Simulated scan of single mutants.
Amino acid sequence: MNHAPTVKLDADRLEQAVASVLDAAGLPKIVQAGHPVLRARALPFTGQLSPDELGRLIEIMTETMRAAPGVGLAAPQIGIPLQLAVLEDKYEVDADIAAARDRAPLELFAMLNPRYRPVGTELASHYEGCLSMSGWQAVVDRAAMVDLAYDDEHGTARTRRFSGWQARIVQHESDHLEGTLYIDKAHTRSLAAAAEYSERWAGPGIAAARAALGF
């Protein structure tokens, strides 16, 4: 991780943030880079929410993620400083791109208090984006395989192994809960506006972008 965020969080702020989302009439806004909550280590879940509240929050986060659309959403991205994220990847992808990125469908799941560790030393380098950095993409080197330890919404401790694009999603969302954005780990010379990325660099690999942009 990069430098430790210094933003201070407390139980009152968590309670207020959760209430604002649960009581709202529509889906919450996804906050953008520059919002302090994205640079704070989220509070561990220790039972601050009732099972009903937690279930409702997960449902709202899932709807928000799908509406964006995205493949993951961490609670800080809707202003809630809690170590909670939802992940799902069931989009149809070009076969060549799916093969190059080792991208397979990921069934919906929620993770609380996640911690991941790389398995082996292999890295995968691909463009990725973030719902909290709308309109931009950059290349990030990520562990090709990780072991994830987390609690599910029922409080059961679980461990799972992920590889390929699924491992990238797990790392990206877990990083959010530590106050880390993907740009902190990206090759900044690869940074591309959405239109440039779509026109030039949205192919299966990054070789052309690497050669042209010099990263």
Rank of each mutant, 00 (worst) to 15 (best):
A4C: 11
T6P: 12
V7D: 11
K8M: 07
D12E: 15
D12V: 07
D12M: 11
L14H: 13
L14F: 14
A17W: 13
A19Y: 01
A25N: 04
A25C: 07
P28H: 12
K29A: 03
K29G: 04
A33E: 11
H35A: 12
H35K: 02
P36R: 07
L38V: 06
R41A: 02
P44Y: 02
T46V: 12
L49A: 07
L49S: 07
S50Q: 04
L54M: 14
G55A: 09
G55I: 08
L57Q: 02
I58M: 00
I60Y: 04
T62M: 07
E63C: 09
T64R: 15
M65I: 08
R66D: 04
A67W: 08
A68T: 05
A68Y: 00
V71A: 07
V71S: 07
G72Y: 05
A75S: 03
A75P: 07
A75H: 02
A75L: 05
A75Y: 03
A75E: 07
P76F: 10
Q77D: 01
G79Q: 01
L82K: 01
A85P: 10
L87G: 03
E92N: 03
E92S: 13
D94H: 01
A95K: 00
A99S: 14
A100L: 13
A100D: 00
A100F: 09
D102I: 00
D102R: 13
D102S: 10
A104F: 13
L106Y: 11
F109V: 06
F109M: 02
M111S: 02
M111F: 03
R117A: 13
S125T: 01
Y127R: 14
E128K: 05
E128G: 05
C130G: 00
S132N: 10
S132Q: 11
M133F: 01
M133I: 10
S134Q: 14
G135I: 11
W136E: 13
A138E: 08
R142F: 12
L148C: 11
A149G: 10
D151K: 05
D151V: 05
D151A: 01
D152V: 06
E153H: 14
G155I: 15
G155W: 10
R158F: 04
F162K: 09
S163G: 06
S163L: 04
W165G: 04
Q166H: 01
Q166W: 05
A167N: 04
A167W: 09
R168C: 14
R168T: 08
I169T: 11
I169D: 09
E173K: 03
D175M: 15
L177T: 09
L181Y: 11
L181V: 14
Y182F: 10
D184N: 06
A186F: 11
H187D: 15
A192W: 05
A192H: 03
A192R: 13
A195S: 13
E196Y: 04
Y197G: 02
E199G: 15
R200L: 10
R200E: 14
A202E: 14
A207S: 12
A208G: 06
A208N: 15
A209G: 05
A209K: 10
R210F: 03
R210Q: 15
A211M: 12
